[in-house]
């Protein structure tokens, strides 16, 4: 068994007086796919935002790829460059074309030559099947296309880990499928993924483990088959009965 690529120990986080994450312990091995589910307000998004330190945690340790995240972390940008993230609201840069959205970070953060970055970007855009839209602006694309572009943009940094924060929640039902397809093929390519989602079909298909969270705590963590076939806690059962 290899060393976990993400290791979270006894992590606590507060927003002011309100404790959003309570005593989180989580280990993710390389190439594993984890799906995090749970009702809204349960801290799922906050948890994965802590993994690339878009949110700061107050207690406990988070170790990503051997680097501990804390106030003392000097090169947080270097760690973030290795952790790709896809957001619910896509967050593409509206003033840049699709291609420029994808090449911006490789060129300026990884110091990649422009030509190489463009080839890489077109390659990634092709994998999510929007290479024909490369010169358009985000505002001209549909939600599903924008989200696939966001996935390509994150992949252009060639990250070791991908975080997905409810990537399909802001999409029409028709567009959800195209985004999920892109994520499934990414998963089959062996990427380490942590996905916050309500798409249980996706979880069943690709996840190695499913985590159920409620009120800032990890209620249940189990292998995917076990999780759906034989949930242990009553809260999980209730959640699954409502969502399935």
């Amino acid at each position: 068994m290899s060393d976990p690529i993400i290791k979270i120990q006894n992590m606590n986080k507060w927003f002011g007086d309100f404790q959003v994450l309570k005593n989180i312990n989580l280990e993710v091995e390389a190439n594993k796919k984890i799906v995090v589910c749970g009702p809204s307000g349960s801290g799922k998004s906050t948890l994965i935002r802590c993994i690339n330190r878009l949110e700061e945690h107050q207690e406990g340790d988070i170790i990503v790829d051997g680097n501990e995240l804390s106030e003392k972390t000097k090169d947080i940008e270097k760690i973030r460059a290795e952790v790709g993230m896809v957001f619910q609201q896509f967050n593409l840069f509206p003033h840049l074309s699709i291609l420029d959205n994808c090449t911006l970070a490789p060129i300026w953060v990884k110091k990649m030559p422009k030509k190489e970055a463009q080839e890489l970007a077109l390659d990634q855009l092709k994998k999510v099947q929007i290479d024909d839209q490369a010169n358009k602006f985000p505002g001209q694309l549909s939600g599903g296309q924008q989200q696939r572009c966001a996935i390509a943009r994150a992949l252009c940094m060639q990250p070791k880990i991908m975080l997905f924060d409810e990537p399909t929640s802001a999409l029409d039902p028709e567009m959800i499928k195209e985004v999920l397809d892109a994520m499934v093929s990414l998963a089959k390519g062996g990427m380490t993924m942590i996905v916050v989602t309500h798409e249980m079909g996706f979880a069943k298909e690709v996840a190695d483990e499913v985590i159920f969270m409620d009120e800032g705590m990890i209620i249940e963590k189990a292998d995917t088959k076990e999780f759906f076939a034989n949930p242990k806690s009553d809260r999980t059962k209730l959640f699954l009965s409502q969502i399935l």
């Binding site: 878009l54 973030r80 290795e82 952790v83 609201q89 840069f93």
Partner: peptide, 27 residues
């Protein structure tokens, strides 16, 4: 500007100046 723009720039590994010069200030 929505907070998501800052989040996206940060998650791509951009530091303060790169984020502002390429993402935030142009908009």
């Amino acid at each position: 500007l929505p907070r998501g723009q800052y989040d996206a720039a940060k998650s791509l590994g951009m530091g303060y100046w790169k984020m502002h010069i390429f993402v935030i200030l142009p908009q």
